[in-house]
Simulated scan of single mutants.
Amino acid sequence: MNSPKLLTLILFFFLTGTVFGQTPQAEPFTFGEELNFEVSYGWFNLADAKMQVAKRPHKENDKSHYQIDVFGKTKGAATIFGKVNDNWGTILDMDTKYPIQSYRHIEEGNYRKHEKVHFDQKNYVALMQLFDKENRNLKEEKEFELPGQVQDIVSGFYYLRTLDLKDMKKGDQIIIRGFFDKEIYNIKLIYEGSEKLDTEIGEKDTYIFSPQIPKNKLFRGEYPVKVWVTKDQNKIPVKIKANLFLGSLNLDLKSAKGLRYN
């Protein structure tokens, strides 16, 4: 089992996307929000993950944007299989809730990948830039046509949090469209109902979503990943569970700072 790759896949299949047919409302997150997770497999704590909104606006083209980062880092015995220190990020337009840029800095063992994608959401174009292992020199640049406005691996989840979810019924579907790794993905999120969970930040009523994941050798079943999102105004993830062919991988919220609503 390669736990870093599993973490990447889980984050991708849930976080990437946009929702067709709904209009975003006022965002339930704000500058300085920080969510910290522990990643475990059975009794083993494999990694720490963090989702963080920068404390100050990112300025570009005379506009203020959110800069949002997701970090994943192995710890303890998991480093035996390869040390991981990954960072996915997005620069999110505060008005449209679509990204103007995404980036990935991947460090897994000896493997390195440094990538930026610049989005022209008005003209439906993405410019991908790939840099060398030291993240100094540009080694590849390619332009992609988009079928419309898209999200990236990080921005999609924050967009989802802006939507009105309270009237959803079990079985309702949210269609996802995202751009990642040079491809367009359209994936369904199925609403599976609600559940009350005991979490590190107290007892929470939650929405449960399952993204439809293409068949592969890692996951078990058509909907192997479940995500629990609080039903309060913050709409933060408190748990993500992936059923593997052997056991399950869990991401559990350990702390939340800087939430917009108390």
Results as ranks from 00 to 15, higher is better:
Arg104Thr: 09
His105Cys: 00
His105Trp: 00
Gly109Trp: 11
Gly109His: 13
Asn110Phe: 07
Lys113Gln: 15
Lys113Ala: 15
Lys113Tyr: 02
Lys113Ser: 15
His114Arg: 04
His114Met: 02
His118Met: 08
Phe119Asn: 00
Lys122Gly: 03
Lys122Val: 10
Val125Leu: 13
Met128Pro: 03
Leu130Pro: 05
Leu130Tyr: 10
Phe131Gly: 08
Phe131Lys: 13
Lys133Gln: 11
Lys133Phe: 04
Glu134Cys: 00
Glu134Tyr: 08
Arg136Met: 10
Asn137Ala: 12
Leu138Phe: 01
Leu138Thr: 05
Leu138Asp: 06
Leu138His: 05
Glu140Asn: 13
Glu140Ser: 11
Glu141Gly: 07
Lys142Thr: 13
Phe144Cys: 10
Glu145Gln: 10
Glu145Arg: 13
Pro147Phe: 06
Gly148Met: 02
Gly148His: 00
Gly148Ser: 11
Gly148Cys: 04
Gln149Met: 12
Val150Met: 11
Val150Asp: 01
Gln151Pro: 04
Asp152Phe: 07
Phe157Pro: 05
Phe157Met: 13
Phe157Cys: 07
Phe157Val: 09
Tyr159Arg: 15
Tyr159His: 13
Leu160Arg: 06
Leu160Tyr: 13
Arg161Tyr: 01
Leu163Cys: 01
Asp164Ile: 01
Leu165Tyr: 05
Leu165Pro: 04
Leu165Asn: 03
Leu165Thr: 02
Leu165Arg: 03
Asp167Leu: 02
Asp167Arg: 07
Met168Arg: 08
Met168Lys: 08
Met168Gln: 04
Lys170Arg: 10
Gly171Ile: 04
Asp172Trp: 05
Gln173Arg: 09
Ile176Trp: 03
Arg177Thr: 15
Gly178Ile: 09
Gly178Arg: 08
Phe179Met: 05
Phe179Ala: 06
Phe179Asp: 04
Phe180Val: 12
Phe180Tyr: 15
Phe180His: 15
Asp181Arg: 12
Asp181Lys: 15
Asp181Leu: 06
Tyr185Gly: 03
Asn186Val: 12
Ile187Val: 12
Ile187Ser: 10
Ile187Phe: 14
Ile187Arg: 14
Ile190Asp: 05
Tyr191Thr: 04
Glu192Leu: 07
Gly193Val: 05
Ser194Asp: 11
Lys196Phe: 01
Leu197Asn: 04
Thr199Arg: 06
Glu200Gln: 10
Gly202Ile: 06
Glu203Asp: 02
Thr206Gln: 03
Tyr207Thr: 07
Ser210Pro: 01
Pro211Tyr: 04
Pro211Asn: 00
Gln212Glu: 13
Gln212Gly: 05
Pro214Leu: 09
Pro214Ala: 10
Lys215Met: 09
Asn216Trp: 09
Lys217Gln: 09
Leu218Ser: 15
